[in-house]
């Protein structure tokens, strides 16, 4: 290598200086044009493929200019590749999982996803991992293999969602009146879609309450506004209508044929003032 002429050195340097920015430029142009037609995820993967692939070709060309035997180098790289492959099975698994993710396309950049206990916005998807920004502004890197193996929920895949609120009322309440009030709450709330219609389901008889499922549809961007407002409105409206939201309670009987335990409430007697200490 050291016996190369200055011309050959200059040629190698020129290839490096001209081709590298060109590859970078092509990768960027490709990313931008793909982003318009396809997902940001596909654009990013294409960018990396062109960037790394082009980089490898430039490196090999420069080495060839400097007198290296490319065939020998590739052979050595093959042997080295097998060794590295064995040593980096996890990375390989992540890489293959990344390809599956691109093909399956379960989420894209900007989606809000839930994986295990992590919920956040997808910031970046790479061949090895995805980066999720949680709502407390911390970054979580999830290997692609985990994304393939774990149950993943894409919260913002569809434009509208349903918020399910569990509502319990006292046994004395009129079921039809409660359902009518819930319908009216949904009608009055500006974030709640009037179509699809809200789901109001009398779920059954709980330990301490009659249980209802109140499912209201909303545009995915209105989640926080709806969640806050609908719960406040249920509380306020039930209070206004005199509908009791019970707390868990227990009635104890001594037997099936007997009356409940008698309970007597005594008013507390005023205790006499303490005598001043003597001495």
């Amino acid at each position: 290598m050291l016996d190369r002429t200055p011309n050959e050195w200059i040629r190698a340097l020129l290839i490096l200086l001209i081709a590298s920015p060109l590859i970078r430029l092509s990768a960027n142009v490709l990313r931008k044009s793909l982003k318009k037609r396809y997902s940001a995820q596909s654009a990013m993967v294409a960018f990396h493929l062109v960037n790394y692939g082009g980089g490898t070709i430039i490196l090999l060309t420069v080495l060839a200019e400097l007198g290296f035997e490319i065939a020998t180098l590739l052979g050595a790289a093959g042997v080295l590749g097998v060794a590295i492959g064995f040593a980096s099975q996890t990375s390989l698994s992540n890489l293959i999982s990344g390809i599956f993710l691109i093909w399956e396309h379960p989420f894209e950049i900007g989606d809000i996803i839930n994986v295990d206990t992590v919920t956040g916005i997808v910031e970046e998807i790479d061949l090895l991992s995805a980066r999720i920004r949680k709502f407390d502004n911390t970054l979580v890197r999830i290997p692609n293999e985990d994304l393939i193996k774990t149950r993943l929920i894409n919260i913002t895949r569809y434009p509208i969602r349903r918020l399910d609120v569990e509502v319990g009322v006292a046994y004395k309440e009129d079921v039809e009146k409660v359902m009518g009030v819930l319908k009216d709450i949904a009608d009055q709330n500006p974030w709640c879609l009037d179509e699809p219609e809200p789901l109001i389901l009398f779920k059954g008889f709980g330990e301490s309450s009659l249980n209802f499922l109140f499912g209201v549809w909303f545009s995915k961007t209105d989640f926080l506004a709806l969640r806050n407002s609908i719960q406040i409105e249920i509380h306020q409206r039930f209070k206004k209508e005199g509908i009791e939201i019970p707390f868990p309670h227990l009635t104890v009987y001594t037997g099936s044929e007997t009356d409940p335990f008698p309970v007597r409430l005594d008013s507390p007697k005023a205790s006499p003032p303490a005598a001043p200490p003597e001495g």
Binding site: Y158, I160, W191, C192, D194, E195, F218, D222
Partner: peptide, 19 residues
């Protein structure tokens, strides 16, 4: 006047509209 939201279309695709 305050208008509430509605969805015009299928749950998977459609258009957010005023009701």
């Amino acid at each position: 006047s305050s208008l509430s939201n509605t969805w015009f279309g299928l749950p998977t695709e459609g258009e957010l509209a005023y009701a």
